[in-house]
């Protein structure tokens, strides 16, 4: 049997090595103040991890990201379920939701500064704003899309009140809820670094600012890389959580 050379298992490592090679070659011709080779980035990454500055900054960043994200999820899920259960309310709310969603969240920063100040509370507010609507829209869609037959069956079994939500509505909408939570946590990581750049500069955002101001491009690349990797890890963690909490959905789509 011939092994196909176009399988991801073969190609991905090739891709990474090739990409790094192109990057390294590009760095040879680009001025050092504008571009850094992967070897230098890796070196800075190791140094910044070794002296503890990078882990400390990441730990600081995670605080407002997690608080904002959890607040958004805790509010968006029940609101989405309640609004989604009523066709009338959902129809009435939809244009407003679309309109507010169209506002670029970063444009709210001056507004949040007035209300919450330049520090922790302001950053939490931005993270909240950037993932609340993302989660809400998905939960709403999940509840709106529940199979009518399922609800009719529940009604014929006299399932009402909280039991209806616990046994039918929430399980049926949960794939969408998890999609919202996964997309939302990606947005939360984006919001985390956005907040650190647009409010008073702290943690990873401050590292980005000081390193780029000093033309220390290798360090700038290293921080960008860490933020991307962290975002990826958070989304994969949510994917894993989805598989554990609602295994039936994964099996039906796999």
């Amino acid at each position: 049997m011939r092994i196909s050379l176009t399988r991801p298992l073969v190609l991905y490592p090739v891709s990474i090595v090739l990409g790094l090679g192109v990057w390294e070659a590009l760095a040879q011709v680009m001025p050092r103040a504008l571009f850094a080779p992967p070897s230098a980035v890796l070196g800075r990454l190791a140094a910044m991890t070794g002296d503890g500055s990078l882990p400390t900054a990441l730990l600081g960043s995670v605080q407002h990201m997690l608080v904002g994200y959890l607040l958004a999820a805790l509010l968006a899920i029940p609101v989405g379920i309640i609004v989604g259960r009523s066709t009338a309310i959902a129809t009435a709310v939809e244009p407003i939701l679309n309109a507010v969603y169209a506002i670029p969240p970063v444009a709210l920063v001056p507004f949040f500064m007035i209300w919450f100040g330049l520090y922790f509370e302001g950053r939490v507010a931005l993270v909240f704003a950037m993932c609340f609507f993302e989660i809400l829209i998905n939960v709403l869609q999940g509840v709106r899309n529940i199979d009518r037959g399922l609800l009719d069956a529940a009604r014929s079994l006299d399932l009402t009140g909280l039991a209806l939500y616990r046994k039918v509505v929430i399980p049926a909408a949960s794939p969408f809820i998890f999609t919202g939570l996964r997309v939302g946590i990606g947005r939360a990581v984006n919001a985390m670094i956005t907040a650190e750049l647009f409010f008073s500069a702290v943690y990873l955002g401050q590292m980005l600012k000081t390193s780029s101001n000093a033309f220390d491009i290798a360090s700038t690349f290293a921080v960008i890389f860490v933020v991307s990797l962290f975002g990826l890890a958070c989304q994969e963690a949510m994917r894993l959580a989805e598989r554990v909490v609602i295994p039936w959905h994964h099996e039906s789509t796999a």
């Binding site: 190609l11 984006n190 750049l197 690349f221």
Partner: peptide, 26 residues
């Protein structure tokens, strides 16, 4: 697909805001 996918996936999750200070330099 195999050659580009890892880099595209990485760029996809990269926060635009984090690129701003770098792109100003560039």
């Amino acid at each position: 697909d195999g050659l580009l996918q890892p880099w595209v996936s990485m760029m996809f999750v990269t926060s635009i805001a984090s690129l701003v200070p770098l792109f100003i330099i560039t």
